[in-house]
Design a protein around this nucleic acid. Structure first.
Lengths: 353, 353
DNA sequence: TCACTGAGTGAAACAGTTTCGGTTGCTGTT
DNA sequence: AACAGCAACCGAAACTGTTTCACTCAGTGA
């Protein structure tokens, strides 16, 4: 309902001035700009092309543009979003807030200027405050793959607690008692879930938590190598490792092969997988898997629904399930650590000759 | 220059009718639609919002939407495109042609309806004809990571011939004479390059090409496994494999570890990598690497340039270089194939105990 | 005092889309 | 045959956002 002309009439300015505010043109008085902006927020302006309202949402990267460090998570997420948008007749834009947003415009202003009606936000290390500000402004938004305590922030994420606990209990059922935990060193709800699952599973099994078995490191291949080296080198070494992110897991596997440590005969490994990385190595990784595509699909559906029905008041705090997949990197704990150090590897060797 | 009203005036119809044609509304006579369309093509209409011309391009997936099967290639490409667009003040939309385009509209019509001024096209298996049609219609477009003979198709790709040849020559210099080639089974310029490099390198080394050493398969993990099994099983087995896509290479590595075949002591492997997969396995893959991000950057720069300067007549047939990176999967050929079948593996085992 | 300059603004022109109503021609009913 | 009804097609007008141009007005320098 709120058009540029309607707002202009209410404030006794011309439509041209309102348009200038919307597009962040420099030559408009600061007081006038403030008046227009606050009125726009009140009335809930939506951008239009001609007489038609635009049906475009954006996937916005608050800090950096599209990242590739997490492997195939981003493509899977995008694919899901596209699938969700298809039925809703919405288009998708890609935005990088830090790069395109001028510092003296509000987030709402920025999004309206880009002609979008809602935004899916990707949450990374240092931009939680940005996300909170966007949510506080009231622009339709939804954070994907992160959790927030602030009630005004909408989010959808995969809850990995049940699967993570299942993973640790799987290791316990195989006889493992020295289970290491390799965590990402950022306070992130996903990783907090996995930590909690680890603690709870050990507690219920009556095993006292050994701080020496828990490491917090960046998500990287070299972190994984460091984890393996450390856990093997303990006086009472770990017999299994639960790594809470894909890169660290791959690092552990790589290092194990480099050092000739047989997985799973000498060391069981459970990872977390966003995509299909678990099937790219041998043995295939036993892993907690989250379906990034489903995450994107649900996000797109909720956001378009919220926009069209104008019920953005109903906060989104959804979680979707992850699953635990048993593959080749977990096995029973060796009866005695030094008894048959190269047993299963010999079998492989023979079958190859 | 060409506005809806201008076109309408030339054809003695109303602006409303032209708009209806542009937006593919059903209730417009077929003859009228044809007349409007042809005139639009002649005059080179560009979509506008209000009085401003839109600065949006799209990354369009002709067939399927964003794919994740090639690992981190897509995110890297997107990241490069975003970087290129940043300086040019263009926005990026993501489109899926097969899903969003109505069958009875032309490609130009579809793109105009989506409000974009140019399109970067991703080329997959069965859509080369689609791409040719788009190019023939004259809409500003650029294909990324593929090659076309048709002079009207603009493309930018990584030329992997020099690096591929370097890779094969590297194997030759290590003493390998039985070098297998595992190819993608689609006629694709990238893979044609690699085939040519293989042929030429062998020819220059005076080695006769053995058809038994060349396999054409889909790009998948299981193809890689099949390749390794076949090449090991030959009467005169291969001592090295050059695999022309990432997935097949990973499959080879996985199978080698599964069968206990030591890489590179018993088998050297050279792969092709779009992203960072080569560093995710142990040993790190010796590989021909192409920089997808640079590809995206250059594509975005060329397309925006072509749009703004209106010099889309200057065809784009650019190639950027790839490089060959020697890592851990290539080594000298064993003096005798059966002499020390597990030598280097034993070393690893000892260092781990 | 006067000319000039620059910030700020609005009227008008111009861009595209939709709504509403009218024309036209075909079809079914009486 | 006549008429009501309906669907296809299309244009005028209304409405959306943006830019251009001209104007005001305050401040400044000669």
């Amino acid at each position: 309902m709120a058009s540029v002309r309607a707002i202009a009439a209410q404030l006794n300015v011309s439509p041209a001035t309102v348009s200038r505010v919307l597009n962040n043109h420099p030559d408009v008085d600061e007081a006038t700009r403030e008046r227009v902006l606050s009125r726009i927020n009140e009335l809930g302006y939506v951008p239009r092309i001609g007489r038609r309202i635009t049906n475009v949402i954006a996937l916005a990267y608050p800090d950096e543009p599209v990242r590739s460090e997490y492997g195939a998570f981003e493509p899977a997420l995008l694919s899901g979003i596209m699938r969700g948008l298809e039925e809703q007749q919405f288009d998708l834009k890609l935005l990088s807030i830090r790069r395109d947003k001028s510092p003296d415009e509000t987030y709402t202003q920025f999004f309206i200027r880009k002609g979008i009606r809602g935004v899916i936000l990707r949450c990374f290390r240092n931009n939680r405050s940005t996300i909170c500000r966007i949510a506080a402004e009231g622009f339709p938004s939804l954070v994907v793959a992160a959790e927030f305590d602030e009630p005004e922030v909408n989010f959808i994420r995969a809850d990995s607690y049940p699967s993570s606990r299942q993973a640790v209990e799987h290791l316990l059922s195989l006889g493992h008692r020295r289970i290491a935990l390799a965590m990402h060193n950022v306070p992130d709800s996903d990783h907090a879930d996995r930590r909690r699952a680890y603690d709870d599973a050990l507690y219920c099994a009556g095993i006292k938590l050994d701080p020496a078995l828990v490491m917090e490191l960046p998500a990287s291949l070299s972190s994984g190598e460091q984890v393996l080296d450390t856990m093997i080198g303990l006086d009472d070494p770990a017999t299994a490792i639960f790594a809470t992110n894909p890169m660290t897991t791959l690092g552990i596997m790589r290092r194990a092969q480099e050092r000739g440590i047989d997985v799973p005969a000498q060391m069981s490994v459970v990872g977390v997988d966003d995509s299909d990385v678990r099937t790219h190595v041998w043995p295939r990784l036993s892993a907690v898997t989250q379906d990034a595509s489903a995450l994107g699909l649900e996000a797109a559906l909720w956001l378009t629904q919220a926009i069209t029905t104008n019920k953005s008041r109903a906060a989104c705090r959804r979680t979707i399930a992850t699953s635990f997949e048993v593959n080749g990197t977990t096995g029973p704990v060796a009866a005695k650590s030094a008894r048959r150090p190269r047993g299963s590897a010999e079998k492989h060797r023979e079958s190859a000759s």
